[in-house]
Lab assay of single mutants.
Amino acid sequence: MFYPNSPQTSPQLTQIPYGQQYAMMQRQIQQPYHPFATTEPQARLYPYHYQGPIQQEQGGFITQQSTAASPQYVQMRVTPVDQSIMSGYPNQTANGSSSSSFNYNIHPQQQQQQQQQQQQLRHHAMPVGSVPLQDDRYRKQLIVNYLAPDVTSTDLHELFSRFGELDGARIIYDKQTNMSKGYGFVYFCHAEDAKEAVERMSGYEFHGKWLKVGYSTNPLNIVPSNSSPYVHAGSRGAAG
């Protein structure tokens, strides 16, 4: 039997160049792979992502010199942007860049009308829970959420009447099932009393439920100042 490094198959040491006398086997001759043993700084910083320098080929596509990437890492192929796409944008300079302001050559009167329309939209648009300043009635009506099913309009009136005089209180019921929808409205005579009720009743436990109280901004629920107070009856038909 002959071994790869046996004296019968191995040459004389004098015939082997210096430095390879003890590297006779194939696994010894093959050098191990060192990912950080390279002179390129990109490979030292990113050993798993770097795959060699990027070269520009004919046709405008950018390719990489090395083989496919590892399945664990996804390499994105980048193509140059066609400058003709950006030619339609206004205020574009000769080098292809555009300024931040756009001039669509709008007539001054049209621009003024658009600004007025935007101001009107901001004036009428009102986020949930906010209180408008032009109508004091919005500051007097509250919406009470997360009410228990057994709470009546009379219970709601008695709960909030300790903060001040009320114009009314009612629970909203479903017309088909005649069941409470879980929320109601309270109408105060003074805005200061309503503000105190919002601050003190939010998070209050009532009939096993934690109440959420806020201003009601729905104009359909506003009680006119010259109208008669609501009837605080315990029956659902009268309260709904």
Score class of each variant (00 low, 15 high):
residue 2 F to P: 04
residue 5 N to L: 09
residue 6 S to L: 11
residue 7 P to Q: 04
residue 8 Q to D: 14
residue 8 Q to A: 06
residue 11 P to W: 11
residue 15 Q to P: 10
residue 16 I to D: 10
residue 17 P to M: 02
residue 17 P to E: 01
residue 19 G to V: 10
residue 20 Q to P: 09
residue 21 Q to R: 02
residue 22 Y to H: 07
residue 22 Y to A: 05
residue 23 A to R: 01
residue 24 M to T: 02
residue 25 M to S: 09
residue 25 M to I: 11
residue 26 Q to T: 15
residue 27 R to Q: 13
residue 30 Q to E: 15
residue 31 Q to T: 07
residue 32 P to S: 09
residue 35 P to T: 08
residue 37 A to P: 06
residue 39 T to Q: 00
residue 41 P to Q: 06
residue 42 Q to T: 07
residue 43 A to V: 11
residue 46 Y to K: 15
residue 47 P to H: 06
residue 49 H to R: 01
residue 49 H to N: 14
residue 49 H to I: 13
residue 49 H to C: 10
residue 51 Q to M: 05
residue 53 P to Q: 09
residue 55 Q to N: 10
residue 56 Q to H: 02
residue 56 Q to C: 00
residue 57 E to N: 05
residue 59 G to C: 14
residue 60 G to M: 15
residue 60 G to D: 11
residue 63 T to A: 02
residue 63 T to V: 09
residue 63 T to G: 08
residue 63 T to W: 12
residue 63 T to C: 05
residue 64 Q to H: 12
residue 65 Q to M: 01
residue 67 T to M: 04
residue 71 P to Y: 07
residue 72 Q to L: 14
residue 74 V to H: 07
residue 75 Q to T: 08
residue 75 Q to P: 09
residue 78 V to N: 00
residue 78 V to G: 02
residue 79 T to E: 15
residue 80 P to N: 08
residue 80 P to C: 06
residue 81 V to Q: 14
residue 81 V to G: 07
residue 82 D to I: 11
residue 83 Q to N: 07
residue 84 S to A: 01
residue 86 M to T: 07
residue 86 M to W: 10
residue 87 S to P: 12
residue 88 G to W: 08
residue 89 Y to M: 15
residue 90 P to A: 12
residue 93 T to E: 15
residue 93 T to Q: 06
residue 95 N to K: 08
residue 96 G to I: 10
residue 103 N to D: 00
residue 104 Y to N: 06
residue 110 Q to M: 05
residue 110 Q to V: 12
residue 111 Q to L: 11
residue 112 Q to T: 10
residue 112 Q to M: 02
residue 113 Q to D: 02
residue 113 Q to T: 04
residue 113 Q to Y: 11
residue 116 Q to Y: 02
residue 122 R to T: 11
residue 123 H to P: 09
residue 123 H to I: 05
residue 125 A to G: 03
residue 125 A to D: 11
residue 127 P to A: 14
residue 128 V to K: 13
residue 128 V to R: 05
residue 133 L to T: 10
residue 135 D to E: 08
residue 136 D to F: 00
residue 137 R to D: 00
residue 137 R to K: 12
residue 139 R to A: 14
residue 142 L to P: 03
residue 144 V to M: 06
residue 146 Y to L: 10
residue 146 Y to Q: 09
residue 148 A to L: 03
residue 148 A to R: 04
residue 148 A to H: 08
residue 149 P to C: 00
residue 149 P to F: 00
residue 150 D to T: 02
residue 153 S to R: 07
residue 153 S to I: 14
residue 154 T to M: 08
residue 155 D to L: 02
residue 156 L to W: 09
residue 160 F to S: 08
residue 160 F to G: 09
residue 162 R to E: 06
residue 163 F to A: 02
residue 166 L to A: 04
residue 167 D to I: 09
residue 168 G to V: 02
residue 174 D to Y: 06
residue 175 K to F: 12
residue 175 K to E: 03
residue 176 Q to S: 05
residue 176 Q to C: 10
residue 179 M to A: 02
residue 180 S to H: 11
residue 181 K to M: 11
residue 181 K to Q: 00
residue 182 G to L: 02
residue 182 G to S: 11
residue 182 G to F: 00
residue 183 Y to R: 01
residue 184 G to M: 02
residue 187 Y to M: 05
residue 187 Y to D: 11
residue 188 F to R: 07
residue 189 C to I: 03
residue 189 C to H: 02
residue 190 H to Q: 13
residue 190 H to M: 00
residue 194 A to K: 12
residue 196 E to M: 05
residue 197 A to D: 15
residue 197 A to F: 14
residue 201 M to N: 04
residue 201 M to Q: 00
residue 202 S to I: 01
residue 203 G to W: 00
residue 203 G to A: 06
residue 204 Y to M: 14
residue 205 E to K: 12
residue 214 G to N: 12
residue 215 Y to H: 06
residue 216 S to K: 07
residue 217 T to P: 03
residue 217 T to C: 07
residue 218 N to Q: 06
residue 219 P to M: 10
residue 219 P to A: 03
residue 220 L to K: 08
residue 220 L to N: 15
residue 224 P to R: 06
residue 224 P to H: 10
residue 224 P to D: 03
residue 226 N to Q: 00
residue 227 S to W: 01
residue 227 S to A: 10
residue 230 Y to G: 12
residue 232 H to D: 15
residue 234 G to D: 07
residue 235 S to E: 03
residue 237 G to S: 08
residue 237 G to L: 06
residue 237 G to I: 07
residue 239 A to W: 00
